[in-house]
Design a protein around this nucleic acid. Structure first.
Lengths: 251, 251
DNA sequence: CGCAGATTTGATTGTTGTCAATGATAGTGG
DNA sequence: CCACTATCATTGACAACAATCAAATCTGCG
């Protein structure tokens, strides 16, 4: 459950970042990579279940996910929890805290996760010196907004079955693009409690809803997660389709 | 229902923009105002009920709200509608369409509304020449994200009564800060249909829920809108409070 | 006046939550 | 290796909440 901060002198430079080779990221100039390398402060490793960022905190850092799954959430005083969105490699975390005063949500690791740690107070330099990277930040924020819009539509107006189908299709697609899924074992690492807290349903009703999807051959529920058997089928049930995968930035 | 585009030669320059005088906006430098004046293409006026921006469109423009109320929404194929958020003076609209390929949601006027129209293809110049304004754009996007997070928490995990109280407290606060509310007539210009489509409830159940709030003396329902009698009471019911009003940017 | 949109109300149906209990599995310490 | 525990998944019975159906009122407006 511990999390480890490595201000790692032998860490891989951003120039050799293995993630950057993936085809869906836009290529960076050498100057941009120099800056990002300098901007980077270290890496943070966290185990499943551990909290990476806490609501209300005034973090001096900003993060990019390098490896693994995580999720953002908020809780009410009496413990009711709402999962807001999931994070995968390439996603930025903590921009809210960096731009505004404090974090309005928490972040927890779903699998072992690695984050790049950036210096919050050098963010303005990024805006001054690298308009392209600044634009990328805005791009990422706009995309997060459009995902949240879809989640709102889902929770507000889709039925329980549609919601569940949407969520699993969505997670499958995110995992697929981020390269987190084996081709044979298309395993999305969430428990039914995570699904329930994302969809705004009770755990019992979530279980019954997922069972229906499994009976229709769309998914199979595994130990601590879900194997997606028929992504297109899920999309059809939810009446949702992922946008065409554009080239995306990765800071 | 018509909307009117004025490429108005006699329009007020951004230097004399009456909105900018309001105390919650950060002061702009003269260079910034020069740029924004140049960036601005004209003004758009729309009547209540008219659609300002359509989901799926590929707009060449970007907007800032100058006057009035509006809202963003998405609809499913069978007509189910989800209102995502409301816009008030100072809010930016259409950034998604500008940064990504096309609009993922629509925008409709709630009252007579006036928007500043900006040139989308000059957005990158803004990033290159005015880091401060670029930072402001990111700030606005991050703030929108944090509002959507709270909406998600609300729809997903609050009860119908809490949701309604949250929404009205939220709208009251936004209207108050934006200077849209008279001190005597604290009138939020939404119908119960808007409330229902924001909260993810049916119109009938919304009506019954609002009636309870009215019976508790928290609100009074008027012709086409809601008078907020006790904002703190609503906040207490919802277990929500607005963050301290920071100085915000306005482009 | 007559119309359209908005609000209100009661009756009924259906979905979802809560309660309670049972398995299943993995990890822990003896 | 085996009880012991904790977490996760599953199931049935029942209660609560919210949707749907249907109808009536009310309002502003042409």
């Amino acid at each position: 459950m511990a999390s480890e901060f490595r201000n790692n002198p032998v860490r891989v430079s951003c120039h050799e970042c293995p993630l950057r080779l993936r085809s869906h990221f836009r290529p960076f100039s050498s100057e941009e990579l120099d800056f990002v390398s300098h901007f980077k402060r270290g890496e943070l490793n966290a185990d499943p279940g551990s909290t990476v960022l806490v609501e209300g905190s005034h973090s001096a850092h900003l993060y990019t996910v390098l490896q693994g799954w995580g999720f953002r959430y908020k809780i009410l005083e009496d413990g009711r929890r709402q999962i807001l969105n999931y994070v995968v490699p390439g996603d930025m975390v903590g921009l809210q805290g960096a731009v505004m005063s404090e974090m309005q949500h928490s972040v927890e690791a779903l699998t072992p996760i690695t984050l790049c740690v950036f210096e919050r107070n050098r963010l303005f330099t990024l805006f001054q010196k690298h308009a392209g990277l600044a634009f990328d930040l805005t791009w990422l924020a706009a995309r997060e907004e459009s995902i949240l819009d879809e989640h709102l539509l889902s929770i507000g107006r889709r039925t329980a079955t549609e919601r569940a189908a949407y969520l699993l299709a969505f997670l499958f697609e995110r995992g697929r693009v981020a390269g987190l899924l084996d081709e044979e074992r298309r395993h999305v690492p969430v428990t039914q409690m995570h699904v329930a807290d994302t969809l705004g349903l009770s755990i019992v009703h979530t279980n019954k809803t997922l069972k229906k999807l499994a009976e229709r051959g769309l998914i199979r529920w595994l130990d601590r997660g879900c194997e997606v058997l028929d992504p297109e089928g899920l999309q059809a049930v939810a009446n949702w389709s992922p946008g065409d995968p554009k080239l995306r930035p990765f800071i």
